[in-house]
Simulated assay, not measured.
Amino acid sequence: MLDGVMLLWWILTVPSFLFVAIDIFRTTPEATVMKWAFIILTAFTGPVGAFFYVLGCREPLKGTHEQYVSVRWRQVLGSTMHCAAGDGIGIIFGSAIGAGLALTLWPDFLLEYVLGFSFGWGYFQAFAMKDMAGGDYLKSLRMTFLPEFLSMNCLMSGMLLVSKFWMPRVSGGDDPGRPEFWFIMSIALLAGFIAAYPMNWWMVSNHMKHGMITVLANERQDDPSSMAGDSASVDRHHAENMSMSHNDETSSVTPTPEAEATMSMPTAAGSLKIRMSIVSVGVLAITLGVVTFFAPMA
């Protein structure tokens, strides 16, 4: 039964991946880092990732992308996609390394968490979006730490519940050399996406994370493949709290003082951010407790 499901999954994944990888660069005026996020997620989630792309990001008619993605749920979809792609790569490959080394639960968890958080925060968040911090990478690291931390904990929780309960029950599920391992981790990534969506909704609503970003043709750098080089025309929903001026000669984003203040101090009150941090850590702690005491041994 599982073999048939996996075969169908991979058969659907190949055309889904090719469609998104080709179409998103040809038709969708989205920030390059978000394009890669959709491509990465589709590589693991196949038709589900393609469905998310068509429903949540693909421009239905030329010139309508900014308006199309301004709806809150699409903004949150983009925010969660960004997290799942960046953190998810680190978590999945951390799991593959841990399985290859036959690590026990806690060393394996720490490896997955460190790799997931490091790649998601250090590259997909801070480096890829550093133009929003005036090109200052260290400032971008400071700006993106808390949003990354909150989202990562929820994503990790969802992925742990699927992978740690399912792998021991499937022959070859804990072997990175077998397709069963990658299928389980693909489903785990989907579960993590679902688990992280509510937290990303809260952060987008409180202007702690961006969602989809429309990049106009005259706002691209000479090298459109650069993930950090997009000069973003932020959608109207987000522009209320993040005003940017654009330099046509350098194609760089220069935040106004008001935008810098907004980006440095998200609108959510400090006490509320502390409470949400406690919620995020609590969700992960409960998940680890459930996995530790109830997940079957490999």
Results as ranks from 00 to 15, higher is better:
1 M>I: 09
1 M>L: 07
2 L>M: 09
3 D>W: 06
10 W>H: 11
10 W>P: 01
11 I>G: 03
18 L>G: 07
19 F>N: 03
22 I>G: 06
37 A>N: 12
38 F>Y: 15
40 I>E: 03
43 A>V: 04
47 P>Q: 02
49 G>Q: 01
54 V>S: 01
61 L>H: 13
68 Y>I: 07
79 S>H: 08
83 C>P: 02
87 D>N: 04
90 G>R: 02
92 I>Y: 02
93 F>Y: 15
98 G>E: 03
100 G>E: 06
106 W>V: 12
109 F>N: 05
117 F>R: 03
117 F>V: 12
119 F>L: 15
130 K>P: 00
134 G>A: 01
134 G>P: 09
136 D>V: 10
138 L>E: 08
139 K>E: 12
140 S>E: 06
143 M>A: 11
144 T>Y: 07
147 P>N: 11
157 S>T: 14
159 M>G: 03
159 M>D: 01
161 L>S: 09
163 S>I: 02
165 F>I: 11
171 S>K: 14
178 R>P: 06
181 F>L: 08
181 F>M: 08
186 S>K: 00
192 G>T: 09
192 G>L: 10
193 F>S: 08
202 W>N: 10
202 W>E: 12
207 H>I: 05
207 H>A: 10
207 H>Y: 13
214 T>R: 02
216 L>N: 03
223 D>N: 15
230 D>R: 00
234 V>P: 00
236 R>K: 14
242 M>T: 11
246 H>E: 03
247 N>S: 14
264 S>D: 15
267 T>F: 04
270 G>H: 12
271 S>A: 14
272 L>G: 02
275 R>L: 13
287 T>K: 10
290 V>S: 04
295 A>Y: 09
